[in-house]
Design a protein around this nucleic acid. Structure first.
Lengths: 112, 112
DNA sequence: AATTATGCATAAGAAAATTATGTATATTTG
DNA sequence: CAAATATACATAATTTTCTTATGCATAATT
């Protein structure tokens, strides 16, 4: 809620990670999933999610399959081959980032 | 270098944290400091730093003292009273964010 | 003498989000 | 049964925050 802005820049990585663990997911499902996983800490907005998904698709990292469930449309996303590679890379970057940030905010900081 | 975008949104927190540990710092010094602390992983650009400092100042979290060293100007920043409080808050938010992100990218993710 | 380093600053543009809408079906609740 | 909430997608306008480019000026190095 409050610190949503810190998540800026990490949405694509989060999506890719979700798809690494769940072969097929649709947008609305991702939002609910993340909400539960983070105990409401991160609420992905649709205005951010859908453009991000479209971008990942246009970059060839995910592909879409449209299914009709009941009378409602669902667009199921899954990782492409290059998406699998990209996911590893992004998670690696994220890990390094987290480690760096951790050091920055815990360090005594004083240098020479 | 590569994953600079993950740092988006965390610059103010980094600045505040630096000033929590070093009573007085000037802009150029912060850039060098962070470069060393992160082993070149994070290179703060001046175009980001100076506006951020000015914003923190206008919000009353830091105050400035201009010194002339040799023939060159230095603007030393330090935390105000409300800046000290704000710093604790921001670091708390950052910690929660880091923890949440850590869980997200390591979790098995599969829910019901 | 020219380049790099120190030290500040701002403007133009890009990237990625928020907020506000819009459409439509399904389910729950009063 | 009507109204509200949940499901499911989408996009446009705006905001935030950054990168890139530029500018000025002094100091140190090559």
């Amino acid at each position: 809620m409050s610190n949503q802005k810190l998540f800026k820049g990490s949405l694509q990585t989060i999506i890719l990670k979700l798809l690494e663990r769940n072969a097929k997911m649709y947008g609305y499902e991702m939002v609910q999933h993340v909400k539960q996983l983070t105990n409401e800490e991160l609420n992905i907005t649709e205005g951010a999610l859908y453009p991000a998904l479209h971008k990942l698709e246009s970059e060839g990292f995910v592909e879409v399959e449209v299914l009709k469930v009941g009378n409602r449309m669902r667009k199921y996303y899954s990782l492409t081959k290059s998406g699998v590679t990209e996911t590893s890379d992004r998670i690696g970057e994220m890990s390094r980032f987290l480690e760096t940030m951790e050091q920055l905010i815990t360090s005594k900081t004083k240098l020479a």
